[in-house]
Design a protein around this nucleic acid. Structure first.
Lengths: 337, 337
DNA sequence: CTGTTAGCGCATTCAC
DNA sequence: GTGAATGCGCTAACAG
């Protein structure tokens, strides 16, 4: 067995209370000699408090849960890294929960995390969650008095907290950039159109067009599903729509556009300009590096941890939905000025 | 507060013992009516045992720690996914610890995980760990009676358990494939040559050459560091060494080779055949898909969890170092048969 | 200044 | 069949 507070009480002859007081730096009233003795033998015996026992009393475990759909997705692994780093700074541990995009598993994890008495949850909702399913999750966490903050995906509401990217602004940035480079017929390959982030990006696209007094043309908007394949398939359709540029709603889709262009001997950016979204690592090392919208993932991670910790200590914040600004990363795929 | 066992004792009028017995399915001697009443009200009141209290008594927390250097690395995120999935099957939670390749942080995490009374640790050692540092980690975990299994990186030893890929076999497979395709002067871009996995791959390379009675030529072996840049730089050197093929010791390095080839108008595989190592996702969607060595990451994850759980329940296994066989994934970069 | 006491929420041994 | 008592390891009132 590991040494307990009792062991060091026996060893030093002081009472358990005294030991506890000293070791928690609350022993101002205890003579320095005593303190020193206790601290010394505690160290010698390799004493470290059992956090299960501490948690039981203090009702805080210095542990939070992270529920996300798939850690293999670079977006989430980058996010998880940022979150873990920030947690480490605050001396907090992170329980990783991979939902595989199954709402049922979200619920499972919420229960288990509650049983483990985590201090809160950072919740990246599974993508099959409609409003009802999301509400089920929210209510469960509320029943458990578990503070939580949503990341990435969210619904507009003041019922909970969320941190996400301002995708409307991102869509606007991407489109505006292409317009400034002189492209006027800009095809879009969206994500699943029932997803808020896709809707927002399209909204931004429309704004940029409007600002430039360009017509919005429904016929050059294609719904994809954020995969390479959907990018290729979309191009199949777009190829004879007389477009001069494409705004792919994520980088994976953009890779599909590249692949199709290569096959058809279409040169990027000479024949077709391309802008992606996400700025995942590979976009940079492509033959023709991809101009793309960079999501402030690290900031999202850091902010969500900070908010969660505030909530966990009982604070209430005024603002509910935090939207972080993405930025434009200009590379070669969008042509040369 | 959440409902406790005490609450449902008061509610039903039975004693705490009876409740506990029933809820843990140990109440064979308790009348079915009683059992039903207890189970029913427990459910109604939404009772779930506090795992902190359970852990305190049972000395098992159904939680394990995963220490790795960087979750953003696809290898590790894939591994983490596999591990988390397997844990979920066993109703175990996973605490994610990102060491950023700092040995000191490994030590920190081991301490904290021990304080949290995890049932064991899956340990992906930070890469700056030499034998002494590794030993420090091992001894610490042993002091805490913490079972652990090393993943990926390891030292040959019967002092602990490890699960990893048979990199020698991987190097052999890659080289043999190129030889069978008719290439005889095969350049190598290795990883840091003090790393066991790099040494092993080179060993496999030599074996394949020997088997084919080909000479090993030191001058076409270049040390890289597993990055895209190192692949490009290596090619700079290899370009006039009259080689017909390259074995890059990981896929990132291979991407560097692609980049250089593109710049120099060298066609892959026509002018130069290429084989990578790792089979990360992007290798498949490249313009010229990469022939590469596929690491059995999922199997590594699953096996390491299974071993750890056996150790945690006190079993001792005969074998210490588990080496899983990689496989060859043939795509276009190594030419057409 | 320090020790006693009373839990935190639960499992388990031993009586009744 | 069921309950009282004990303890897991620790913190925190409250005495003294």
């Amino acid at each position: 067995m590991r040494t307990t507070i009792k062991d060091i009480a026996e060893e030093t002859g002081f009472s358990i209370t005294t030991i506890s007081l000293v070791l928690n730096n609350k022993g101002d009233s205890i003579p320095k000699v005593t303190r020193d003795i206790i601290k010394k033998t505690a160290k010698e015996m390799g004493y470290r408090p059992n956090q299960l026992a501490v948690g039981l009393i203090k009702k805080r475990t210095k542990t939070i849960g992270l529920i996300i759909s798939d850690i293999r997705n670079v977006f989430f692994s980058t996010l998880a890294k940022a979150i873990e780093d920030e947690c480490h700074k605050h001396d907090i541990n992170l329980i990783l929960c991979n939902s595989n995009d199954e709402h049922k598993r979200d619920i499972d994890y919420i229960n288990v995390l509650a049983d483990k008495r985590v201090d809160g949850i950072i919740y990246g909702m599974s993508s099959d969650s409609d409003f009802d399913k999301a509400t089920e999750s929210f209510e469960l966490m509320n029943d458990y008095f578990l503070p939580f903050v949503m990341v990435d995906r969210y619904f507009d509401s003041n019922m909970y907290y969320s941190v996400s990217t301002d995708h409307k602004y991102g869509g606007y940035l991407a489109t505006k950039h292409l317009i400034e480079r002189g492209y006027e017929r800009i095809g879009c390959v969206t994500g699943p159109i029932y997803l808020k982030d896709s809707i927002d990006r399209l909204e931004g696209y429309k704004c940029a067009l409007e600002e430039a007094k360009l017509m919005y043309d429904d016929s050059i908007i294609v719904e994809g599903n954020y995969t390479v394949e959907s990018g290729m398939k979309a191009m199949e359709y777009l190829k004879d729509k007389d477009i001069s540029a494409v705004f792919a709603f994520n980088d994976m889709t953009a890779f599909g556009v590249y692949n199709y262009a290569k096959k058809m001997n279409i040169s990027i950016p000479k024949d077709l300009a391309l802008v992606g979204y996400d700025d995942i690592f590979f976009s940079e090392i492509l033959e023709t590096p991809l101009t793309t919208i960079h999501q402030p993932i690290d900031e999202i991670g850091i902010l969500s941890v900070k908010i969660l910790l505030l909530l966990a200590q009982g604070s209430k914040l005024k603002k509910n939905n935090y939207l972080l600004k993405p930025s434009l990363t200009i590379r070669k795929s969008s042509g040369i000025r």
